[in-house]
């Protein structure tokens, strides 16, 4: 509920482990890939997604229904986790879940900038972060970017956004605002972590995530050959890259691949890198980083059973499930055959 008092990992871990058991298995994914969107919705209705499908079923249908039900269920589950946890545990979990706040803030800003209607923006929000419903309502009601900045005045995004807003007024591009939000998120993610052993494991995982994100971005830039400064997309906090090495490596694909192949992630990403060299497939590499993160998360949850790590491990697995179901539903809508969809899924 809040960051005061002592943490209660026993309670949260017990609940999360029970929920982990009800995530979809390989077998169920295989069934899902052979269903039509409406059958998928019906299948979901018989599992954990029952309440969401029933609540949204009268207003939406098909892939939209699946998409909204997934988002809403994700938000409900993660909000629940934040509700249960107390003390240091709350702080550690909130760090990670704030990425949904960052996503929501960026979505609202973009919505205001492009003049999208309130409903359009609302369906894209994922209410899984720290912001409560009242703040989100006020964000949605904001009709200018200045109003958005004002609503966020008393949050951690307040001061950086205020500075970025001045820059935005001069240039009229959103990049400074979005960068400000991202920077606050990543600073908070890795700053001031307590020093016990499970937390160090958690930190190592977060760093791996930042590294992989940097690697993905660098590869994408190197492949596209676009004239974009890679340093602008650099995320602080990782171990593998610094701003300069990333800027240098993103110009040359071969050097970049070699650099990653010689790093501490060589074991996890080795096969994907070879595939990248042979088949030139960026998707395979991105899947490999996702799968490596997920495997990392699974391992993370078993080393220190009563700590923050099983909770994070569940959060990752749940996110992955939502992404997988979304990929299946979208693939089915586009008429892809089952085996092609299966290749798109990330299952450990």
């Amino acid at each position: 509920m809040s960051a005061v008092g002592s943490s209660n990992p026993e309670y949260v871990v017990a609940r999360v482990r029970a929920r982990r058991g009800s995530l979809y298995s390989d077998e169920e994914y295989r069934k899902l890939t052979r269903m039509s969107p409406s059958e998928i919705a019906r299948f979901m209705e018989e599992s954990t997604y029952e309440a969401e499908i029933n609540a949204l079923g009268s207003r939406h249908a098909g892939v939209d229904l699946i998409e909204y039900a997934l988002n809403r269920n994700l938000a409900k589950q993660f909000e629940g986790i934040l509700d249960w946890s107390e003390g240091g545990l709350y702080d550690l979990i909130a760090r990670y879940l704030r990425k949904f706040d960052a996503w929501n803030v960026k979505t609202v800003i973009r919505g205001v900038y492009t003049g999208a209607s309130q409903e359009e923006v609302e369906v894209d929000l994922i209410r899984a972060g720290e912001f409560d419903d009242r703040r989100i309502r006020r964000l949605l009601e904001a009709d200018s970017i200045e109003a958005v900045v004002e609503v966020l005045e008393d949050t951690i995004y307040g001061a950086p956004l205020r500075e970025a807003y001045a820059e935005y007024e001069e240039t009229d591009v959103l990049v400074p605002l979005e960068n400000a939000v991202d920077r606050v998120f990543y600073e908070r993610l890795l700053g001031n972590l307590p020093g016990d052993e499970p937390t160090r494991q958690y930190e190592a995982f977060l760093k791996a995530e930042v590294d992989f994100r940097n690697a993905d971005n660098a590869l994408r830039l190197a492949r596209s050959g676009a004239e974009i400064d890679p340093a602008e997309y650099f995320i602080e906090g990782g171990e593998l890259f610094t701003r300069d090495t990333l800027a240098r490596l993103a110009r040359n694909l071969d050097e970049l691949v070699e650099y990653i192949a010689e790093s501490q992630y060589a074991d996890e990403l080795g096969p994907a890198l070879r595939e990248l060299e042979e088949a030139d497939s960026l998707i395979a590499f991105e899947h490999a980083t996702d799968a490596a993160l997920l495997a990392y998360g699974d391992r993370l949850g078993t080393i220190h059973p009563v700590s923050v790590t099983p909770v994070i491990s569940y959060i990752l697995a749940k996110e992955r499930e939502v992404e997988n179901i979304r990929a299946i539903a979208r693939g089915k809508e586009a008429g892809l055959p089952a085996n092609e969809i299966e290749e798109e899924l990330v299952i450990t």
């Binding site: 026993e10 017990a14 609940r15």
Partner: peptide, 14 residues
């Protein structure tokens, strides 16, 4: 203390 809170958590789910 620890077992009890874990047990209550598990019961809340099932």
């Amino acid at each position: 203390r620890g077992i009890g809170s874990a047990a209550v958590g598990a019961m809340a789910e099932d």
